[in-house]
């Protein structure tokens, strides 16, 4: 790409509007990444005020989503974007939904943290929490990479991230098995174990949302829709037009 995706219009204001939408989306991405990290830190440090903070600032993520959506609707209504401008507006609109969900999951982790330390009678065991850190590291790492790929509009990297994730799926499976083992060994851990399962499920969802965002980056840059490839749709719609002409001259 010789120039940034949003630039070069004869109408300069159009550049500025698209650029602002991208900026809002990146700001939102950075904000939810920070939310997930803060939620995990609060959990690790048993810091209940930090956990409360994560829940309290979720409204800011929601406000950003509303603002960005409003600007996207305005660009569609007034500029009639086509080609890569259209893909950019639609792709970001979809990515925003995933980002907002990530923010919700972060808030959910913070609420589970409050529950673990406040309402359960005892402190959760160290071994039980270990699985959260493994999943947390994978989820935040993936999200960070996806947001960087979005920032750079790096379709190769985004595609790789969108197709990856087996490591995270495997870690999720193995965490569930380990937690099941803990419950079998000591029934008193069951309360905390359920909380931990909910948290790692949240982290697994965050990973899925991050991969969805990566798919949107690929769509924005290349126009290839790579959603649901794992469900058997092996050829990308539109790829067929790359085949040689059927009719000889």
């Amino acid at each position: 790409m010789s120039q940034p995706l949003e630039e070069g219009h004869t109408i300069k204001r159009f550049d500025a509007e698209l650029s602002h939408i991208i900026m809002l989306a990146l700001e939102m991405g950075a904000m939810v990444l920070n939310q997930v990290r803060s939620a995990l830190d609060a959990l690790r440090n048993a810091d209940l005020s930090a956990a409360r903070q994560v829940i309290d600032v979720d409204y800011r993520v929601n406000a950003l989503e509303l603002q960005a959506d409003e600007e996207i609707v305005s660009v569609i209504a007034r500029r009639g974007p086509v080609a890569r401008d259209l893909r950019l507006t639609i792709g970001i609109s979809k990515a925003l939904t995933d980002m907002e969900r990530i923010g919700d999951e972060a808030a959910k982790i913070a609420r589970m943290t409050e529950q673990m330390y406040e309402t359960e009678g005892s402190q959760p065991g160290k071994d039980l929490k270990r699985d959260i850190y493994g999943m947390g590291k994978l989820a935040t790492g993936l999200l960070q990479e996806v947001i960087t790929a979005f920032d750079m509009l790096d379709a190769d990297k985004a595609q790789q991230l969108a197709l990856g994730g087996t490591e995270m799926d495997a870690e999720f499976e193995s965490s569930l098995r380990r937690i099941a083992t803990f419950i079998m060994e000591d029934h008193r851990t069951v309360g905390h174990a359920v909380d931990v399962v909910i948290i790692i499920k949240s982290l697994e969802r965050i990973g899925d949302h991050a991969r969805n965002i990566a798919e949107q980056v690929v769509y924005m840059v290349r126009g290839t829709d790579m959603r649901h490839l794992e469900n058997g749709a092996k050829t990308v719609p539109g790829a067929a037009r790359n085949s040689p002409p059927k009719h000889p001259r």
């Binding site: 379709a155 595609q159 197709l163 087996t166 799926d169 495997a170 499976e173 193995s174 690929v218 290349r222 126009g223 290839t224 790579m226 490839l229 794992e230 092996k234 050829t235 990308v236 790829a239 790359n242």
Partner: peptide, 14 residues
């Protein structure tokens, strides 16, 4: 984990 890693690679044309 080994089982999941050997699943067929998905081709994305562009």
């Amino acid at each position: 984990f080994d089982d999941t890693t050997v699943t067929e690679a998905i081709e994305v044309e562009h």
